[in-house]
Amino acid sequence: MTDVKKIAVIEGDGIGPEVVAEAIKVMRKTEEAYGLRFDFEYGLFGGIAIDEKGTPLPEDTLAMCQKADAVLLGAVGGPKWDSNPKELRPETGLLGIRKALGLFSNIRPALVFDCLKEASTLKPEVLEGTDLIVVRELTGGIYFGEKFRRDSAGGEEAVDTSTYNVQEVERIARQAFEIARTRRKKLASVDKANVLETSRLWRETVIRVSADYPDVELEHVLVDNCAMQLLRRPASFDVIVTENMFGDILSDEAAMLTGSIGMLSSASLGEGAFGLYEPVHGSAPDIAGLGVANPVATILSVALMYRLTFGYHEAAEAIERAVSEVLDAGYRTSDIAVDKSTALNTSAMGDLIVAAIR
């Protein structure tokens, strides 16, 4: 009998609870279809936790996540908390939970479904065959470097420092090489080595690590060129590995290749199998409570969880196949529908995907 896996569920803010509910329905269906067993425990996080507990990352929520086998997160944040001091902003909770759980990489697939090419702003022939993954380093770089202000001859001056050490670069590089080995064995390492010292260290380290992966083709791409090539020839990329800031920007750019950020899943991983899984999209407070959010990104995040944390490859493929079948049949939520009058609501889309899991 399959072991019971503990899942820490954080619904979050805005549309988070709506899309998480559909993901849970999918997980329940795979319990029936594949004999899997899950124990779900819920906790507060983000803006709602600030409102109810005075902190974006309550201690009991963190403890729940630390005891779990995986975390399923909806979305956090919104304009309501934008003017809060730094320690009372939902984004601070995200940085805190990543650090506390030892999550140093963010995995973001970008797959263009043939039936959704019309939803993208790029020409269909440019998108043909696009199936890539961005591996973003999460715990270093300018996000975590020293920040301060000081007086200067030109007036007040702000300083943000970016730092990386060899260990940080090596562990993310190895993870990216391992992922590339399971795909088309192509890795693009993105940096700005012609300008930045951190990028020169990055490139040197990636080259050294590459000696352990002779079966993977390594390409070095400057970040500005990568941004251009993602629009010019996206199908030429397989796995992209890069630092925190570049990864933040490039993964959002890659998301738009698919036509909607509502289609993109993600995983945040550490050294072991444990991971935090969430859609790339935000909390979308403008449509919260309307029942029109696209649940596909969260459902595909479950497929990532099954594959990367639990090794449930057959169930993961069943979820991905179900999503593809529903989309191929012409069903759409409003964010990807050409004719908005035919768009399905969140729950109806989830029900169709559940029904397609076999």
Rank of each mutant, 00 (worst) to 15 (best):
V26G: 09
D3W: 00
V19C: 07
K192T: 07
G54F: 06
L187I: 04
G330T: 04
A297P: 04
A63Y: 01
E204G: 00
G289I: 02
G262I: 11
P56S: 07
I172G: 09
S83C: 03
A343I: 07
R358F: 03
E271H: 12
Q229W: 11
E157L: 09
P56W: 01
V216M: 03
T309F: 04
L257F: 01
A180D: 11
D160A: 05
G247V: 04
L290W: 00
K147A: 10
S260A: 01
R28S: 08
E278I: 00
V126P: 02
A158R: 10
A227P: 09
E219R: 10
V112K: 12
T182N: 13
R233G: 00
A21C: 04
F144W: 13
A288S: 11
A75C: 10
A267L: 04
V9D: 02
V239G: 06
A70E: 11
D212K: 08
K185D: 11
L138P: 12
K86E: 15
D248V: 05
S341K: 10
V9C: 05
V20Q: 01
V134W: 10
F274G: 03
I336W: 05
M27P: 11
H281A: 03
C226P: 14
I133Y: 12
E52T: 11
I7R: 02
T130W: 01
P90C: 02
E32T: 14
R200Q: 15
G78W: 14
L196M: 15
S251R: 02
G140T: 01
L95E: 03
H313P: 01
L196N: 10
S162D: 11
T346K: 10
V302I: 08
V221Y: 03
G247D: 06
L111Q: 08
L308H: 14
S260D: 10
D335E: 08
M245Q: 14
A153V: 14
K29T: 02
V195A: 14
I10Y: 15
S266I: 00
L276P: 04
E41L: 00
L257G: 02
M64P: 08
G145H: 11
D286Y: 09
V323H: 05
L201T: 05
L230W: 05
V112N: 13
S189E: 07
H281M: 04
I299V: 12
Q175I: 00
G129T: 00
R149H: 09
N165C: 12
A70T: 01
R208K: 15
E157N: 01
I249C: 06
V4L: 07
Q175C: 00
L127H: 03
V338D: 04
M263V: 00
N225Q: 11
L101P: 15
D238A: 06
G46E: 01
M245V: 01
G77H: 10
E31G: 11
N294H: 01
L116C: 09
E320T: 12
A119C: 11
P109Y: 03
I299H: 09
G74Q: 09
V159R: 06
